[in-house]
């Protein structure tokens, strides 16, 4: 639905976005992950025509954004929740959007209710809104025209944990009804539970992509690990080694290079009581995220980039 092809955006000799391509499919949530300044926002701004690309293009449903008539009815956009006139009331912000798109004003009430802004809050000026309230207003604005595509830049920023959970439910429901969602974040945990697919970006380049499981497998080089704790770790370690499995002490238990089911089987055979058994790559995604993005930062070491970027 959203198709990014060979997109590059240069500022002088600095490449904010460097030849990236990806697609977002209908019925899915795509998470766009990367540290601040990685190029997420620039990519999203190019999508909606606010920043002209240097090379490459983005199409939404086969069309360039500027060729979509009344685009608010097809693509919901939230790029910066703080970019609203401080002197307008929350309701007035939606009123302007609804009038521009040609919507009934009943739609405004619906959206206010959906994002839980009560009538009293809606009458307050945006100046007096917390960041979380601005995000809710921004999400209401993005959904106003009942679009089939949502492009949200850091929508969870400023939301409290309950707000993040609410947004997760909202976006998953939206995707289940066939909508396409692209949302960005610099925080892994905000995205990993919502996104069907994740795209990791660092220094303007895509460094990894795939489903959560695919990324995890990639993180450990395709090998599963298991964390296990038992009443007799020493005996378990020996038993595992006898089966040809590699086990190392980790915290109060062991880290084993194997699927949890294999470790469980060994313990059952030897009648060792397990107190904890789980897949050990939970932290792997976080590690992977930091590692991949740190790698791109190391690549950005002054001595190497100076020459490579000038020649490029």
């Amino acid at each position: 639905m959203i198709k990014v092809e060979g997109l590059t955006r240069a500022y002088g000799s600095f490449l904010a976005v460097d030849d990236i391509s990806f697609e977002c499919k209908p019925g899915t949530v795509t998470g766009f992950l990367g540290p601040n300044g990685a190029g997420k926002t620039t990519t999203m701004r190019v999508m909606v025509g606010l920043t002209p690309p240097t090379r490459g293009e983005v199409t939404i449903g086969g069309l360039h954004y500027r060729d979509i008539p009344n685009p608010g009815r097809h693509v919901g956009v939230l790029l910066d929740a703080s970019a609203q006139h401080a002197g307008r009331t929350g309701r007035e912000v939606l009123e302007i959007g609804a009038r521009t798109m040609g919507l009934e004003s009943a739609r405004i009430e619906e959206m206010l209710e959906l994002v839980s802004l009560d009538p009293r809050e809606a009458k307050r000026r945006v100046r007096n809104y917390s960041l979380g309230m601005r995000q809710r207003l921004g999400i209401a604005h993005a959904l106003l025209g009942d679009p089939s595509v949502l492009i949200l830049d850091e929508p969870a920023n400023g939301l409290d944990p309950a707000g993040i959970r609410w947004m997760r439910g909202l976006l998953q429901g939206y995707a289940e009804r066939g909508g396409t969602v692209l949302l960005s974040s610099h925080l892994l945990h905000e995205v990993e539970q919502i996104a069907d697919e994740m795209i990791l970006i660092g220094n303007g380049r895509i460094v990894a992509r795939g489903t959560r499981e695919e990324l995890l497998l990639g993180a450990t080089g395709g090998v599963a690990t298991t964390l296990v704790t038992s009443l007799d770790n020493h005996a378990l370690s020996q038993a595992l080694t006898e089966r040809g499995l590699v086990a190392h002490p980790a915290g109060g238990g062991l880290r084993v290079t194997a699927e949890p089911v294999e470790v469980g089987r060994v313990a059952a055979d030897r009648q060792i009581v397990l107190t904890d058994l789980r897949a050990g790559n939970e932290g792997g995604l976080e590690d992977l995220f930091l590692e991949l993005t740190a790698d791109t930062q190391r690549e950005g070491h002054p001595q190497t980039t100076m020459t490579s970027e000038v020649s490029a």
Binding site: M1, G27, G61, I68, P69, R99, T100, S148, V149, G178
Partner: peptide, 26 residues
Amino acid sequence: MTTAMNVPPTIDVTGTARIPFARLFR
């Protein structure tokens, strides 16, 4: 997710008129 495969990745804009200028003015 299964429905995703059946939906063509295009948006139907035939039913959408562009925003009339009078509306932008108002």
